[in-house]
Amino acid sequence: MEYVIHLSIVSGIVAILGMSLNLIVGYTGLLSVAHAAFYGIGAYVTAILLAGFGVNFFLALLLGMALAAAVALLIGLVLSRFDDDYYVLASLGLNIIIYSVFLNWNTLTRGPLGIPGISRPELGIGGYRFGLTSNFSFLVLTLLCAVLVYLAARFITRSSFGRVLMAIREDEQALQVFGYRTVYYKLAIFVIGAVMAAVAGALFASYITFIDPTSFMLRESIFMLSVIILGGLANTNGAVAGAVILVVLPELLRFVGLPSNIAAQMRLLLYGLALVLLMIYRPQGLFGKYRL
């Protein structure tokens, strides 16, 4: 049962990442592979504040979201000048640059040593302290956050703001002709997505209680992209489905009993194969409404 709770927490975190990236990629059509950077910012802010200064988790979470928003604003401004292929490349480059910062800015992030001893969230009501030390309680927190993100995503996509985003995806120039300042919309959704990713990062840091730069490399961004491509772009439910599938499936491989050399590569193989086959036979993913 504990194992199921563990997988559920991980799925929840990935689902938040998927839903937030979906807003950027699926709805607005901005193919960003920089998302792991914001995931990392949320995680590192939480880690540093919790492990180093004993700050309350929820405060650290807010600060992480704020920093992610600020960085996203800067990066978003840079990226908004590009379209399509160049957007991908630029976001890729930015991801690698931010990863370098995580890895090399030793005084702040301890570089490859990582940050251990991150505490679990604590709630203080009056004089009573309640710590989320059991995994089950952490699962509740994660699900709560996931549901909030889900509702926020639904709200955005059903609003007129969301409709403008989808219009940008389909034909940005036409919108501009109509007088819409598309740059602002793109920037806004990029920042919103980044803030959500930071929430996932904070949860991740507090759950595993240890983070190091290797969790925020380019391959993580590619993994997130695969989650929503599999689940189907422009579909919030799809993002959740994709997250659960891509978290649980590799774990199931653990039980199949392949020789260990093959097992690790098999995971990558299936994952790459899934991307290729999806592109050939079902580019809109499982539940998607938007064909790339």
Partner: peptide, 23 residues
């Protein structure tokens, strides 16, 4: 197919080939 589809398919192929070689 759009360029993005090709790009993602290419990414998948890269992953597959690397995994096969490693195996």
């Amino acid at each position: 197919a759009t360029n993005l589809v090709l790009l993602i398919a290419a990414l998948g192929l890269l992953t597959v080939i690397q995994a096969l070689i490693a195996m």
